[in-house]
Design a protein around this nucleic acid. Structure first.
Lengths: 233, 233
DNA sequence: GAGTGGTCTAGACCACTTT
DNA sequence: AAGTGGTCTAGACCACTCC
């Protein structure tokens, strides 16, 4: 038995979500129906569904059914925007400015992104919190995977919701590397802050449900009143 | 059914690990034996064990058995020390200096720590990496929970291994809050670095297997050659 | 009441490790 | 060969949601 049956079921459902058969927010067939259709027992279908839920791809509700995860601005912010105030409350930033350009990809961008894109969209935006500049983000995505992105400006606050709704691209996880730095002259002007302000620089690779890197993101965060909060397990 | 049976089994095993019945590294009874002893089916015992494994409390190996997680310096570093080099390789620091003092706890320390300790040990240490200062850590633990800690100086590089071996305290998770700062005059001297060096300040609360906060830790990290690396899911 | 996921059982067989 | 965890099945009943 090279591949467990429940793995087969898992992969089958993932590919159906990826190809649009089960769009985000839609209800999946019941455990019994999945079992019948794929010729496995209910328990095996169930095991696959539990794994899918652990990965954040679906949500299961007793009495209601199983649904493909629908990224809302709230859930997106909660999972992928780690800034919290001193009491641990979620920080909800607002968009201050934004620019989008289409350009040739750099070699390292093309290497990192899925599909070796020759062209990318580069989004730069500044986010505020309580009237003060909070972060500057530079986001790189494949122009091939997100056609027409430039025409959608201004983009919604929550990019991952847009990715899901308009491009059927569901972000499941992200690898992030942090280092400390200072703001610097150039950004200080745009963010109306002291150039000597300490910042956290975060380099992110965002993965979709097929574990493909679909976004590169550099976030420069001013942590004067907020914390980057995380749980290690 | 207020509490599922597998939850009861889960809690039973956790308390037995906590009270020393099953010390770290020891083998648990087989699924069948646990089922017999607690009057549940093998499947229910199994479900409890799977949950325990997900929490990192035990490890299961096909053909060998189930073992209480043994924190080694490697596993401890891997889980709780997030520094990686540019290629993603684990950074292994070495201990440069260390001081331990016993003192009265501050109000906020006593509030945060399990057991409302009146006295605490404060450990300060500097860690190096490749000959250069990497981090300065200030660690606060209850003097009641870790008696005689002061006499154990110099402490091993991996504190959580000591906690487990000598105090039967198994660290399972940690909440961490990060912010950017700069090194400052005082520490710069001790760490032989530029006072203007940007650093990441990390405030950690470490939880044992009963979800009690048993350690407070402030880490000041120089991220010139390394990254704080994390995966968001 | 019908349909969903959640829990629990009993039993079979497979894959792996150790003796 | 014996013992362990891993997979899979079939069926029962419970708890919750919605009509």
């Amino acid at each position: 038995m090279s591949e467990p049956l429940y793995r087969f079921v898992f992969n089958k459902i993932v590919s159906r979500i990826a190809d649009g058969t089960h769009p985000p927010g839609s209800m999946l067939p019941s455990e019994i129906d999945i079992g019948h259709e794929l010729k496995v027992s209910q328990g095996t279908a169930r095991k696959a569904l539990i794994e899918l839920e652990r990965k954040g791809i679906i949500e299961r509700r007793q009495g209601r059914g199983t649904f493909v995860t629908l990224r809302t601005p709230e859930s997106s912010l909660f999972h992928f925007f780690r800034m919290r105030d001193a009491d641990g409350n979620q920080v909800v930033p607002d968009l201050h400015s934004e620019t989008i350009v289409r350009r040739k990809s750099r070699a390292e961008e093309s290497r990192a992104l899925y599909g070796d894109p020759e062209e990318v969209y580069q989004i730069s935006r500044i986010r505020n919190f309580e009237g003060k500049a909070l972060s500057h983000e530079t986001i790189i995505v494949s122009a091939k995977l997100f056609p027409g992105l430039q025409e959608r400006s201004p983009l919604p606050n929550s990019l991952y919701v847009l990715f899901q709704h308009s491009y059927s691209c569901i972000i499941i996880s992200a690898r992030e590397r942090l280092k400390a730095s200072i703001l610097g002259e150039e950004l200080a002007a745009a963010m109306k802050s002291d150039p000597a302000t300490p910042i956290i620089e975060a380099f992110r690779e965002s993965l979709d449900l097929l574990d493909r890197v679909v976004e590169l993101r550099t976030s420069l965060m001013i942590t004067e009143n907020v914390f980057y909060s995380i749980t290690l397990e």
